[in-house]
Amino acid sequence: MRTDDKLDQMEEHPPDRPPSRMTRTRWWLFGGTLAVYVAIVAGVLATSWLVTFDWQAMLFRPYKQWPEIHAFLDYFVVLGQRGPTAVAVAAWLGWRCWRTKNLHPLLVLGTSLLLLNITAGAAKLGMGRLGPHYATTIGANEMWLGGDIFPSGHTANAVVTWGVLAYLATTPLRRRALSVIAALGALGVGMTTVYLGTHWVSDVLLGWAAGLLVLLALPWFEPGVEWAESRLTALWRQLRTRWLPAPAPLAPAPARSGLSAPRPAPEEEVLVRDAMGAARPGSPTRAADSRPHHPPRPHTVRSERTPVTPTGSRRPPHADRAPRTAPLAPAPVRGRTGGS
C-alpha cells in the first residue's frame, strides 16, 4: 500500500473506539466522584478531622521512618510528573495513530490533559493551600496563603495520563487490566508524595477525585474530538495537495530476457491467421507473438523408417583419382634391348 493510500484512510474510524456518550454507569460514577470531591474540599475548609489526619501523617515523617526506600521513591514519583509521562504516552499513542490511520488517540490525550490543567490548575490557584514543608501553624488548614498543592498535581496527572490508555483500550479485557494498572500506579504516586512530605493526605485524595472526574467526563467531549479530527485531516489533505508532488505513474516492468511474451488467446490467433491469409503449404507461418509457426506433420517410429544402405565410395570424387570400379591398366614389361 502506498503512502497516499494510507493517508487517505485517516478519515476512517476504527470500530473499536471508546463510547462517545455517557452511559448510566458513568453517570453514577461521575456523580459519586463529584460528591467525594466536594466533601474533601468542605472538610479541609472546615478544618475537620481530615486536617487533623493531615498533620498526624506529616509529623510522623515517613521519609525518616523508612529512609532505605527514599532513593527509589524519588525516581518512582516521576510517573506522576506531567512532562515525562505525557511524552511517553504521546509517543505510544502516536504510533497507534500511525497504525490505525486516525488522530483520535492523540486528540483524546490532548483533551484530557487540557481539562486537567484547567480544572486542577484553577482549584490550586483558587484555594492557595501551602504544602507540609511550608506550613506555618500546627493544626491549621493552610488555605489561601499563596500555595498551589491542593489538589495534588502528581496524583491527578497519574490518574489521567495512565487512565487514558485504559479509556482507549480496544477490548473489555484490556480496558479492565489497564484500569487496574493505572489505579495502582496513581495510588503509588500519591502515597509517595505523602512519604516525601510534599503533599498532605487530603491533597492526594482530592487529586484522585480530580483525575477521575476528567476521565469520566471524556465522552462529553468526543463530538468535539471528532470535529477536530475531521478538520485536521482536511487541512492535511490541502497541504499535501498543494506542497507535495503527485506520485508518478508506475511504468510497466520490462520483460526479462529469456522469457517469451504471454501467448494470445485462441480468438486472437484466429484473427491473426485470417488477416494474414492462407499461407503456402509446407511453409512456416508467423503467429501473433512473432514466432514462426510450422504446420504439424506426422512423425514415424524409428522401426517404420526405410533403412538407407550406402552405395559406392564415401570418398569425394577427384580428377586425378581413378574410380575403383575401372580396371587397372597392365604395367609395362621392361626387357633388355640390344643384340641377340
Rank of each mutant, 00 (worst) to 15 (best):
L113M: 10
L113W: 00
L113P: 10
L115V: 03
L115T: 06
L115C: 14
L116K: 00
T119F: 14
A122S: 12
A122Y: 12
L125V: 10
G128K: 04
G131R: 15
G131T: 09
A135G: 13
A135E: 03
T136G: 14
T136K: 13
I138N: 14
G139E: 02
N141I: 07
E142Q: 12
M143R: 02
M143Q: 10
W144R: 06
G146K: 07
G147W: 01
F150M: 09
H154F: 00
A156N: 09
A156D: 08
V159E: 08
G163E: 02
L165S: 01
A169N: 04
A169L: 04
T171E: 05
T171L: 04
P172K: 04
L178E: 00
S179M: 08
V180P: 01
I181P: 04
I181C: 09
L187Y: 08
V189S: 10
V189F: 04
M191I: 06
M191A: 15
T192P: 11
T192A: 11
G197K: 02
H199L: 05
V201P: 12
D203A: 10
V204S: 08
V204R: 01
L205P: 14
G211D: 05
L213I: 13
L213M: 15
V214W: 00
L215S: 04
L216D: 13
A217K: 02
F221Q: 06
G224D: 03
V225Q: 03
E226P: 10
W227Y: 05
